[in-house]
């Protein structure tokens, strides 16, 4: 008992000296206090495990021969989520579809973060005509309604008879390319403010190059914003991909994606009689997007010093 008291005292005194409290570590600590955000984070990890590890545990494989006689079976002990009309296991397909959808979301996010933060930082740092050009470009992209553009692009791609396997990558880049302006604006605003700070004057008198000033001194200060926007844009990417695939313009079968699986609900008979075909991918999209958004909000609260209560 007394030993336990002593130990807990020791622990109370020690922690701050363990490692230097970097801003990131402080934010992480803040994040841990937010139960909802942590729940979102855990759900997201489970979803990743489900999609990337799950298929390895399944008795079925994507290479299994189609068997129409075994098609359209409702959930059973062999097929937990039933089978589709050519007899493929729906559970396996949901998991594989998740790989595609998550990958599209993440790669689209990376493309948009890379373009958005770089251009935003350059615009904010140089101002003047560089800023005007970049921001007007952003305005143009933002003012194009994205759905029509995506539909037109999708139709054009279908015309070009592109290999479905490569088509995913194109979808990723297009989604990423259309979503950078929002981030670029936020980063630019931050950089405009940061470049007037005294520490930037101090960096200037050290004789640093512009590149170093922008990418080493300014951008790291905007990372909180970038992280939050990036997280939320993963959810956005997944949704956009689903919409496109649902419309038959994004990822096309046989590659499964949550979006093109839901398109099963297109036909009346499957919508009414075979809900196991479209409910599972729908639920997956819903859970993933909600989890990411909840986590993104938590991250924003943890990283923004002004929102601390």
């Amino acid at each position: 008992m007394s030993e336990a008291v002593v130990r807990s005292n020791a622990v109370e005194v020690k922690p701050p000296t363990k490692k230097p409290a970097s801003p990131w570590r402080l934010a992480l600590r803040e994040m841990r206090k937010n139960k909802l955000a942590m729940a979102g984070f855990v759900v997201l990890i489970l979803m990743f495990l489900f999609c990337f590890v799950g298929p390895l545990l399944s008795p079925y494989s994507i290479n299994d021969a189609m068997n129409v006689r075994n098609g359209n079976k409702p959930p059973s002990a062999q097929h937990w989520l039933g089978t589709d009309k050519v007899g493929r296991d729906v559970l396996l397909r949901v998991m594989l579809a998740g790989r595609t959808s998550l990958l599209v979301g993440i790669v689209a996010m990376m493309v948009s973060v890379a373009i958005g933060s770089t251009l935003g930082a350059i615009a904010g740092y140089y101002r003047g005509w560089v800023d005007t050009i970049i921001m007007r470009l952003a305005d143009i992209i933002m003012s194009i309604p994205s759905l029509p553009i995506l539909i037109i692009l999708g139709a054009a791609l279908s015309e070009l008879k592109m290999d479905p396997a490569n088509r995913i990558y194109l979808v990723m880049f297009i989604i990423g390319f259309l979503s950078w302006p929002g981030l670029a604006r936020l980063v630019r605003g931050q950089i405009l403010m940061l470049r007037e700070q005294e520490f930037m004057q101090a960096a200037e008198v050290l004789g640093l190059r512009d590149r170093r000033k922008i990418f080493r001194h300014l951008l790291p200060n905007t990372v909180p914003i970038i992280i939050v926007v990036a997280t939320l844009s993963v959810a956005n990417g997944i949704l956009t991909e689903s919409v496109l695939s649902f419309l038959g313009l994004g990822v096309v079968p046989p590659t499964p994606s949550w979006g093109n699986m839901i398109s099963a609900a297109n036909s009346m008979i499957e919508f009414q009689k075979r809900p196991w075909l479209w409910i599972p991918p729908g639920v997956c999209i819903f859970i993933t997007v909600v989890a990411i958004n909840v986590m993104g909000d938590g991250l924003r609260d943890a990283l923004d010093p002004k929102s601390k209560r």
Binding site: P20, F199, A203, V205, L206, G207
Partner: peptide, 26 residues
């Protein structure tokens, strides 16, 4: 050439030590 002089041959310190260091770098 001027960049080579700044910080190397002529250095400068400022009034506000609280804001003259970049908060995200060690």
């Amino acid at each position: 050439d001027m960049r080579h002089i700044r910080g190397n041959e002529i250095a400068m310190i400022f009034q506000e030590p609280m804001t003259s260091l970049n908060p995200v770098l060690t």
